[in-house]
Amino acid sequence: MGQLVGYARVSSTGQSLDVQLEALKDAGCEKIFSEKMSGRSTEGRDQLAEALDYLREGDTLIVTRLDRLARSVGDLFTILDKLTAKNVGFRCLSQSAVDTTTSSGRLMLGVLGAVAAFEADIRKERQMEGIAKAKAEGRYKGRPVAIDREKVRLLLAEGVGPAEVARRLQIGRASVYRAMEAREGLGAS
Rank of each mutant, 00 (worst) to 15 (best):
Q47S: 03
L112G: 08
V115A: 05
Y54F: 13
A97D: 02
A179Q: 12
G14C: 04
G58W: 05
T84H: 10
S189Y: 11
E43H: 10
R123T: 14
A116M: 06
K82M: 08
V176K: 03
S38T: 15
A114D: 12
I122D: 02
G6V: 02
D67T: 00
A8V: 04
D59L: 10
G185T: 15
D67G: 00
G89S: 06
Q15I: 01
A49S: 04
A157T: 14
R71A: 08
R9K: 13
A136H: 02
L69I: 00
R123V: 11
L156Y: 14
Q127M: 11
L4N: 15
K25S: 11
K82F: 04
E30F: 04
I171A: 03
K151H: 13
E30I: 15
R173M: 14
G172H: 09
R183M: 13
L169I: 11
K151I: 13
T84S: 09
L112V: 14
G172S: 15
A188M: 08
E119G: 06
L52P: 01
I131T: 06
K31L: 09
A27M: 05
Q47N: 05
G28W: 06
L24N: 07
Q3A: 12
G161K: 04
R91P: 01
T78N: 09
E22W: 08
V165A: 04
A27D: 06
L66E: 06
F33Q: 03
G142P: 01
G130S: 11
L24V: 01
A163H: 13
G14H: 10
S11Q: 05
S96N: 09
V145E: 07
A116G: 12
A114C: 07
A51Q: 02
T100A: 03
I32N: 07
R183Q: 13
R68M: 02
V19H: 12
D53H: 13
L155H: 13
R139V: 01
M128T: 11
K151G: 12
R167P: 00
G138Y: 07
L156A: 15
S175W: 13
E43F: 07
T78V: 11
R167G: 02
S104K: 05
K82Q: 14
F77I: 15
V176E: 02
E30W: 03
V5A: 03
G28I: 06
A120K: 11
R106T: 04
K31F: 10
F118G: 02
F33M: 04
G14D: 15
D148N: 15
S96R: 06
A179Y: 07
R68P: 01
I131Y: 08
V19N: 11
V176G: 03
K151V: 10
R40Y: 12
K133F: 09
L66R: 05
K135I: 00
G187K: 12
P144N: 11
D121S: 14
L48M: 09
A179K: 10
I171Q: 04
F77K: 15
R139T: 03
R168D: 05
S189K: 12
L156P: 03
A97Q: 04
S16C: 06
R143H: 10
M1I: 05
A27E: 05
L107R: 02
R68G: 01
E22Y: 12
R45K: 07
V98P: 00
C92N: 00
